[in-house]
Simulated assay, not measured.
Amino acid sequence: MADLTGKVAFITGAAHGQGRAVALALAKEGVNILAFDVAKDLPYPAYSFGSSDELTSLQHDIEALGARCLPIKGDVRRDTDVRDAVEQVMAAFGRIDILFNNAGICAYGLAHELTEEEWDSMLDINLKGAWLVARRVIPVMIQQQSGVIINNSSIAGLRGMNRLSHYAASKWGLVGLTKSWAIELAPYHIRVNSIHPTGVNTPMNDGLAALEGTTTQAIAERSAGNLLPVPWVEPEDVSAMVLYLVSDGARYVTGAQFVLDAGLLTR
Results as ranks from 00 to 15, higher is better:
His112Ile: 09
Glu113Gly: 06
Glu113Ser: 11
Thr115Pro: 08
Glu118Val: 08
Glu118Ser: 09
Trp119Ile: 11
Ser121Phe: 13
Ser121Thr: 14
Met122Gly: 05
Leu123Trp: 11
Leu123Thr: 10
Leu123Ser: 07
Leu123Gly: 08
Leu123Ala: 08
Leu123Tyr: 12
Asp124Leu: 10
Asp124Val: 08
Leu127Ala: 09
Leu127Lys: 09
Lys128Arg: 15
Gly129Cys: 12
Gly129Glu: 13
Gly129Arg: 11
Ala130Glu: 12
Ala130Thr: 14
Leu132Met: 10
Leu132His: 06
Leu132Thr: 10
Val133Leu: 08
Val133Met: 10
Ala134Glu: 02
Val137Glu: 00
Pro139Gly: 01
Ile142Arg: 15
Ile142Asp: 02
Gln144Pro: 00
Gln145Ser: 11
Ile150Trp: 11
Asn151Pro: 06
Asn151Met: 08
Asn151Phe: 08
Ser154Trp: 01
Ala156Leu: 04
Ala156Gln: 07
Gly157Thr: 01
Leu158Ala: 04
Leu158Asp: 01
Gly160Glu: 02
Asn162Val: 15
Asn162Pro: 10
Arg163Glu: 15
Leu164Pro: 00
Ser165Asp: 03
His166Arg: 02
His166Lys: 03
Ala169Lys: 02
Ala169Thr: 08
Ala169Ser: 12
Ser170Asp: 01
Lys171Ser: 01
Lys171Phe: 01
Lys171Asn: 02
Trp172Met: 03
Trp172Cys: 00
Gly176Arg: 00
Lys179Gln: 15
Ser180Ile: 05
Ser180Trp: 07
Ala182Tyr: 11
Glu184Cys: 04
Glu184Pro: 02
Ala186Pro: 12
Pro187Phe: 07
Tyr188Arg: 10
Ile190Cys: 05
Arg191Pro: 09
Asn193Ile: 12
Ile195Gln: 02
Gly199Trp: 13
Val200Asp: 00
Val200Glu: 00
Asn201Tyr: 15
Asn201Lys: 15
Asn201Pro: 06
Thr202Leu: 04
Thr202His: 07
Pro203Phe: 04
Pro203Lys: 05
Met204Arg: 07
Met204His: 07
Asp206Pro: 08
Gly207Arg: 04
Gly207Ala: 06
Ala209Gly: 09
Leu211Ser: 07
Glu212Trp: 13
Gly213Cys: 10
Gly213Phe: 13
Gly213Arg: 11
Thr214Asp: 05
Thr215Val: 09
Thr215Asn: 05
Thr215Ser: 15
Thr216Phe: 10
Thr216Asp: 08
Gln217His: 13
Gln217Lys: 15
Ile219Glu: 03
Glu221Asp: 15
Glu221Val: 05
Arg222Pro: 08
Ser223Val: 14
Ala224Arg: 13
Ala224Ser: 15
Ala224Gly: 12
Ala224Pro: 03
Ala224Lys: 13
Asn226Ile: 10
Leu227Thr: 11
Leu228Met: 14
Leu228Asn: 06
Pro229Gly: 03
Val230Asp: 01
Val230Met: 03
Pro231Thr: 10
Trp232Asn: 05
Pro235His: 06
Glu236Leu: 02
Glu236Gly: 04
Glu236Tyr: 01
Asp237Lys: 01
Val238His: 03
Val238Phe: 08
Val238Met: 11
Ser239Lys: 04
Ala240Leu: 05
Ala240Asn: 12
Ala240His: 11
Val242Met: 03
Leu243Arg: 13
Tyr244Cys: 04
Tyr244Met: 10
Val246Ala: 09
Asp248Ile: 08
Arg251Asn: 12
Tyr252Phe: 13
Val253Tyr: 12
